[in-house]
Structures are given as structure tokens and as C-alpha cells.
Amino acid sequence: MSIRYLELVCPAGTPSALRTAVEAGADTVYCGFRDCTNARNYPGLNFDFDELCAGVTYAHARDCKVLVAINTFPRAGDESPWHRAVDHAAAAGVDAVILADLGVLDYATRCHPNLRRHLSVQASAANAPSIQFYRDHFDVRRVVLPRVLSVEAVAELIAETGIETEVFAFGSVGPMSEGRCYLSSYLTGLSPTSEGACAPASHVAYEEIDGRVLSRLGGVTLNCFARGEPAAYPTPCKGRYVTHGQASYLFEEPVGLNAIEILPQLKGAGVTALKIEGRQRSRAYVAEVVTTFRRALDALERCDEGTPTGQLHGNTEGGKETCGAYQKGWR
């Protein structure tokens, strides 16, 4: 595969989304199996083994790589689904697996030494010693960085570790400690890190009262959207909580991450790949976001003035965008 500029890594929640992403200009697509081994374990989503094999064939025929996320954490004494997922990914001929758990990394290293390993953001490796540990012990070739680093911090990490980095370019702002957040577990009894679904749909409920929409998770009201107010995902980190008699977003406002304006800075920092989040989104989202980023990256490669940034804010939570921690102006 030729990396035209920054490698564009795109979500594929279903086989049709995979084809859409490839056609829209993805350099790489990432997907997961239909079980608890990946962090987007939602009903009707993901791939079985045959679908993955077909997807790999389709993508490789179009010079596009396929990565498989096996990025949840095995339950004690029940590692077999994760080991089977690694075996199936290797058998399907994928280009790399995206792993988070030490045991799964160890299994993949021992049983499939030639299968390229990436470190999932779920491992939350955000400092040089941590990244070097994964690189040195499991020959991890690429790390997906948590969304808590400024561009300068990303550049320093790359310089210090010498490892390929993949950073989020579009999706959630994600300021939580990824892979270690238990807010959703507290409300639902299900672990996002081992069951693979933060705010599982089975525990989500919406109620409309006089034009206002209440979103609940595990019976706890997380938000109330006024008539016409843009809505957000029903995750605890984006709940609006009442403190001192006033409702406000304590952890994170419903705002989407969009780094399309700072692609030159990310390139300058030495980033290898840009990740578009959204395996749980429809293929219409995939088509629009991937097409927009493809155009922006191609324009950047040609050194065109005025990189096209598109109009993606309609696809983001709350209808608002930010560069998040990349340009953080807070301490």
C-alpha cells in the first residue's frame, strides 16, 4: 500500500461500510468480530469470519489494508473468545490486529509472530515508558494514542519512542482514561472493557415529554434535551448533572473532535496515521467523513492552498466541533 500522505484509517462496522470506506478513499479500514472481543459490541454490528475474509479480499484488491480490533479485556478464566478472535484474524489474512490486553498481546506474539500488532487506544498508553514497554515486549509496531495529548506532546512521544503513531482525527473528544473508564459499568453492571459496549443499547431508554427528550442509562437520567436542542449519546461522561442547583456538563460537553484543520501540524509532528472513529455509525456517515478527509489529505499532499475542510459539523454530537486536546488551551 502506498501511503499518499498521512494514512487514513477508517471505520467499518459492517461489510457494506467496509466497501463504502474503501470506495471513499480509505487507505486502511478497521473492523471487529460479532462478539465481546471488540469495543463496539452492538447488536447487528460487526463481522463473522466469512464476512471478514470477503472484506479482506475486497479491500486488498483495491490496495487497502484491513485491521481487526480485538481490544477488550478478557474475563478471568475465559480467554478463549479473544484467542479465537486472534486466530481468525490471522487466518483471514488481515494486515494487523489492534490489541489492548497484555495476555492477548502475549498470545498473539507467541502464536502468530508474523501478525503485525498495533496497540489499541484502550490500553491508554500515553507516555514514553508505557509505549516502549509494549514495543519492546510484544513488538508492537504502532500505537493508537489517547485523545488527551497536545500536538507538541504527540511530537515528543514520537521522537522519544520512534514508533508509528495513529491519532484520532474525527469522532468523540474522549477525554476519559480510555480502557479504564467504569462510569458505564457503575450504571449498567456491564463492563465496557470486557463486554465491549459503553452505554450498551440494552440499558438505554429515551422518553419524550412535551418536546423534551430524556435519555436514561440503567434507569439513571443522564440528560434532558429541550425542544430543538441537539442531542448527544447517552454516555455517563456526557451526562448533564445538577450541582449547586444548576445543570451542567461536568465531564465532557457533547462536542465532536475534528482535526481536519490541523492536518499539517499532525504531519509535522510525525504522525503516521489518522483514525476516523465511528464503527457504530451508518455507512452514510462513513462515506461523507472519509470522502472529506480524503480530499483534505490529497490537497495537503499537493500543497494546495486552503485545504478543503468540508462541512462535517452536522455529523458531530451537539452539532459542534473542536480540536480537543491537540490545541488545548487549558491546564
Binding site: 441537539p230 442531542a231 448527544a232 457504530q280 451508518s282 456517515y285 455529523n315 454530537e317
Partner: peptide
């Protein structure tokens, strides 16, 4: 996209 519709 259904999520986009939901946000709106």
C-alpha cells in the same frame, strides 16, 4: 446517518 438524525 441515523446518529446524525438523532443529534438533530
Amino acid at each position: 446517518d441515523s446518529d446524525t438524525l438523532f443529534f438533530r
